[in-house]
Design a protein around this nucleic acid. Sequence first.
RNA 1: CGGGGCGUAGCGCAGCCCGGUUAGCGCACCUGCCUUGGGAGCAGGGGGUCGGAGGUUCAAAUCCUCUCGCCCCGACCA
Length: 476
Amino acid sequence: MAEKITPRHVDYSRWYTDIVLQAKLADYSPVKGAMVIRPNGYAIWEMIRENLDRMFKESGHVNAYFPLLIPESFMQKEAEHVEGFSPECAIVTIGGGQKLEEPLYIRPTSETIIWAMYKKWIMSYRDLPILINQWANVLRWEMRTRLFLRTSEFLWQEGHTAHATYEEAEEETLKILDIYKKMAEEYLALPVIVGRKTDAEKFAGAEHTYSIEAMMQDRKALQAGTSHNLGQNFAKAFDVQFQDQDGNLQYVYATSWGVSTRLIGALIMAHSDDRGLVLPPRLAQRPVVIVPIWRSAEEKTAVLKYAESVFEELKGQYRVILDDREQYKPGFKFADWELQGIPIRLEIGPRDVEKDALVLVRRDTMEKQFVARKGILQTVTDELQHMQKDMLQRALKFREENTFQVDDYAEFRKIVEGEGGFIESHWCGDAACETRVKEETKATIRNIPFERKKESGKCIVCGKESQGRVVFAKAY
RNA sequence: CGGGGCGUAGCGCAGCCCGGUUAGCGCACCUGCCUUGGGAGCAGGGGGUCGGAGGUUCAAAUCCUCUCGCCCCGACCA
């Protein structure tokens, strides 16, 4: 059989597309720019969703659902917001066979409809805070689309909170960022740089935006989540005031934050290899596959009996696949499950039955080891934990090896135009310098990391004073 | 909007220039046999408005006209 996946070194973006299609994560839809998320892909989203949802609820948030369609007038209330989103909106103008009096926007995000409702619900400080999240689809008309990374319609969660003070809103914004970091590192095994976006890169309508940024295997950056402190911008636009304890009317402070199915793209590009998908164990709904191997009918009986006993032992803890299909040889099954990223494969053949052992293969390292039948549940559990940890460490090491401190613009350009990577350079804070770098190199400031050294230096572009380094990279 | 390319089975393609019986190949799919410790083999089988419409002709996947869709490059936009 021919190779199904273009190797990374041949064509990175084709490799990515091949993985998505061949691992049956998603498929192209009849509508340009949209995609179908297939069961394998949706399973990953479910794992992300279940865990994030739990963390949101543990931190006091509740879920709700706001409608898909937003009156045009709502969209136009917040000036920056309108400007930021108008070009990429789809608008419904006909309903029930008649032209609508007011066009309805298909939500590109829900701030406006939500703040129109918050106006009705918020009267006093006793109504605050409101900590609502919603799981929804949104639509942004995109010219260049790529499966999971940028599609016109995508799934996400969007949190929208309302607070009595700026400080409380800021605290919320940061709390969520922490949850995102946890999701990225502990579940996706994806090390991220936490920081603040520059004004040029912030959300349209926000006071400021924070993000988590990850490095992909082609050394490009991918924004994996954002959290915005919206200040009083939306409260003012929608006239949402509350009466404080002293009886004074004040505008409400807001936040919003989201992660999307783009995380699945991040996951693929950070960990997968030329054989196919590599799933971190904590995101695998089915972390183990058992492949029985036999020749004769007697062997088949013995092997299957043995395999079933292993299956029974593991199934209380893990969703296990027992691949007893007759029509495929073991070699085919190995390749098939590797393609789909199943973290651990257990091979069971006549020799293993005899020795009361089995062969365990880790997807990330492809390392084969003989393990004892006894205690297999514990062995699998240990291996899954190690794999989870190793994947994060490996990704972290890769990022560190491809992060450079640069103080000379010529060298900066050489790196960006060459292999690429994250470049930590001084920046004076002037948008003009940021723009110049973007125009000349296509690299942008990913964020201003929280964990940066206080270090005086000179702006990589203009040479003016700078307090610390920011992270530049080409981004998805 | 300009230039170029492509539409033939689920996917990838050949056939077209030079019109001629039932339109073919690889992969995938179905049935059977045989195999099974790294993507097997053999035999049989199902599946097509040849993108669409019109025209030329005894005869069109093939020639002509129109039309629709997609891809690449440029322009535009960021």
